[in-house]
Computed example of a mutant assay.
Amino acid sequence: MNLTKKQANKLVTGCIDNNRKAQEELYKLFYADMLRVCINYLPDREMAKEAFNTGFLKVFQSIKNFDTEKGELGGWIRKIMIFTSIDKCRSELKFNHLLITDRDDDEFFISPDILEKLFFDDILKEIRTLPLATQTVFNLSVLDGFSHKEIAAQLNISEGTSRWHLSEAKKQLKGLLETSAKGAGRQAERSGKTK
């Protein structure tokens, strides 16, 4: 959600002044996108809704610290939602403190012809099948661009453990997506034959 600086300033000022209309407008404006962020990190919708509501409480409590000159309001709220989601699922996560040896990422390469056969929802469904710890590291790294150092600090794990989970996610996803793509290809062939 891209707001002009003027729109963002108006919303921020209204929220700082405890203006209920401004708070409601901010909430409604970012509801769908930020709930989706929470859903990406949490295994069930109820936990995601809880994290979302906790995150918005944090937004309203700390909005006086937001500076429209230094950042974009949506990006600032997104970070709060990510960190709140991580806090929410920390107790659920069971990280193995493993070290990964250097592996060549090419062995986990997914060819474009496989990805072309899948929709985003298919890919997201497969990401959801990963163990929660592995899924969280994958989301932070691939979807949100966090470094292994940042992931390690957020999840209280070593950088090596973060690398292992990312590598494991890529390895598992490669197999899952290849299987899904084959199924999608067979389905497309059947649909073509019936016409």
Rank of each mutant, 00 (worst) to 15 (best):
K174Y: 01
R36I: 08
K182M: 08
N139S: 14
M34W: 12
V37M: 07
K170W: 03
F30L: 12
I39T: 07
I86H: 06
I80G: 05
T194K: 12
R190E: 11
G175Y: 10
D87F: 14
A184R: 03
L73D: 01
E25W: 04
S167A: 09
V137R: 01
P43D: 01
L93N: 04
L98I: 12
K182V: 14
F95M: 04
E72H: 10
T68Y: 02
D33H: 10
G185D: 15
D102N: 14
A181H: 06
Q23S: 08
S158I: 03
E46W: 04
L26C: 04
G145P: 01
D33C: 03
K195V: 13
K79G: 02
N65R: 12
A184K: 03
Q135C: 06
D121P: 10
L166S: 07
I77A: 04
F52C: 00
I86M: 12
T84D: 05
I100T: 12
E168R: 07
L26H: 10
E178P: 08
L93T: 02
F95V: 02
P131W: 07
R20P: 08
D87I: 08
L42V: 10
G175F: 11
R78E: 11
I39A: 08
D144T: 05
L124E: 11
F146K: 11
T13P: 06
N65L: 08
K193E: 13
A153T: 14
K174W: 04
R45G: 10
L35D: 00
F66L: 06
S162L: 08
K94Y: 13
E72M: 09
S162H: 05
I114N: 04
L73K: 00
W164M: 10
D106W: 14
A152T: 10
K117L: 10
L155V: 09
A48Y: 05
L166V: 09
G71I: 03
I151T: 00
K149V: 05
T54F: 13
E178Y: 08
M81C: 11
T84C: 02
G160K: 04
I127V: 01
V137E: 00
S167H: 07
